[in-house]
Design a protein around this nucleic acid. Structure first.
Lengths: 308, 308
DNA sequence: GCATTGCGGTGCGTTTTTTGCAGCAGTCAG
DNA sequence: CTGACTGCTGCAAAAAACGCACCGCAATGC
């Protein structure tokens, strides 16, 4: 959009940290970019960047401006989306930031279902930990976020929640697989693989252990559930996951099974569907969010995973 | 601001109802303006205006766009204001829409007090009836509104309220001036001048009469309180006003006095200070609104007008 | 019923704005 | 000191915006 071109350029400079760097990434000369910046600062009556010997950095005024720019662009996107919608074109682009647990089953399934009805809607799904998911909403890098145990929920609006008790994942013939529900004390003595600290599951486990005498020390810590899940085979290792990140219990010859941890030991966490507070979402994003909210409600109404 | 120039032009076309008309008011050729419009519609992928034989009219897409334009401009104004503020320049421009009663005493006094501290802040005060004051907030034609008995308060956020009992205004030596509080029945038989129906005072009186047997038929109806106030001299005519639109009771040799109507007959109305819901006001407007809120609180805490 | 008026849109030459190149002074790492 | 990097500035070329004259069209006035 021609209107916001200069403002986009400003954001590019902020990202690059230098005018010349941004100019390269924009396929422009530094001259042109520099002059646009100077003209804008002239109009604003205040410098947008502090000039450093090695580049530029946003000034306080620039911080205000960059916020404004992001909002302007998001607003314009929304208007364009609404206009396209009233032309009957059910197209659009939805940006989702979500926790890891949503990636293997939930998000693919939901997006697939949505695209079956609206094939012209495109998606962008980004893995963001609980803190950065909220940041993504604020900077308009994401339209909606699905986060397990978010950090603070400031500036965001909750659209739906679903309780998610922590499950232990193990190989099918693990001794503990015999029990339908596990106590924390059951786990002592087995090798443990834990997600790293930025994850909600880890947060809940740390919280639980702080309140009890039981200490579970992980042999493996990783920020990749993929890795943790692939690892346990040889060692009978236990790892953790929430139901929405697990396959249906009876879905054929899975190598792994999961058992819930007793909620007296580790309380169930909450999965949040959220958008930025006060923002009107583009049509496609709003509709998709509505679908997700229904799916989460359905997941928490019935038994989360019907046991055997 | 260069960024929004085209969008401003679009709004001008919407106002003028024709491209050529808008071009004249913008000191442009219709050619240039027309081409900008065509380019924008190209970018949007939808016509912004319906072409009529005698000009243009906003299309549905245009309605969405014009809303966006107004919001963009208001947002940009706010950012500029914030930037100016952090430079220490306490300048700015505040647009107020208010009911008639605020014009003679309250607004001049408050603006004067504010400008005493911030001389670089300029003001724009527009008389808007209860319906149009809310409209002004929504279209960003006003930053804040002070309305007596607003219509519906949708899309607006109330910052403060002050109760305002209806007063009867009369010449100093009017027979009714002897009573400290008037009943509605006291007024029967005297000539009456009433504000027209768009005013909150009239709304309250009509409401009261609908609930009682007493009928007060006005001899004079006017949308100008100035006129009504100037009229009563020769005829002992009674007219109505709320305290905030009246001089202090004991302020020297006024020709007129006022007496409250018993609130059992006519309930006190509410004066609302409001802004648009969800909007962050420019610095100057926000500060002025805070001052007004204090003034209204003070007015309703103590006795509204200390009697003799 | 026909000329007039005002409308949105278009081709073309001109004016204004933007861009790119070359080069300046300054800072920092090695 | 050297070399690489920064933001910034004349000056000429390229690009975009503009204004004029004009077209087709529909409503209006007489």
């Amino acid at each position: 959009m021609k209107q916001l071109e200069t403002l986009e350029f400003i954001e590019a400079i902020a990202r690059a940290g230098s005018i010349r760097g941004a100019a390269d990434s924009l396929s422009l000369t530094s001259t042109a970019l520099n002059r646009r910046l100077l003209a804008l600062e002239e109009e604003l009556g205040a410098p947008v960047f502090e000039r450093l010997p090695r580049g530029v950095r946003l000034s306080p005024a620039g911080e205000l401006l960059i916020h404004h720019i992001r909002q302007q662009r998001a607003d314009l996107d929304r208007v364009r989306s609404q206009i396209a919608d009233l032309k009957g074109e059910r197209r659009g682009h939805v940006k989702v930031a979500c926790s890891q647990a949503l990636l293997p089953y939930f998000m693919p399934h939901e997006i697939n279902a949505y695209r079956a009805e609206h094939p012209k809607v495109t998606f962008e799904v980004n893995l963001r930990d609980r803190y950065r998911a909220e940041q993504a909403l604020v900077t308009h890098a994401a339209d909606i976020a699905l986060v397990f145990e978010p950090v603070r929920l400031a500036d965001v609006q909750v659209l739906a929640t679903a309780p998610q008790p922590v499950h232990v994942v193990m190989v099918r013939d693990h001794p503990l697989a015999a029990k339908p529900v596990l106590r924390l004390s059951d786990l002592v003595g087995y090798p443990i693989g834990m997600p790293s600290e930025e994850f909600g599951v880890r947060y809940l486990l740390d919280l639980a252990m702080r309140r009890s005498a039981i200490r579970i020390t992980p042999q493996i810590v990783s920020d990749s559930f993929e890795f943790l899940r692939s690892y346990p085979g040889p060692e009978l290792m236990l790892t953790f996951q929430i139901p929405i990140g697990l396959p249906a219990q009876d879905s054929g010859p899975e190598a792994f099974v999961s058992r819930p941890v007793d909620t007296r030991d580790v309380p169930a966490g909450l999965l949040y569907l959220a958008q930025m507070r006060g923002r009107t979402l583009p049509v496609a994003a709003a509709n998709f969010a509505r679908q997700l909210a229904r799916a989460l409600d359905a997941a928490s109404d019935g038994p989360v995973r019907p046991g055997p």
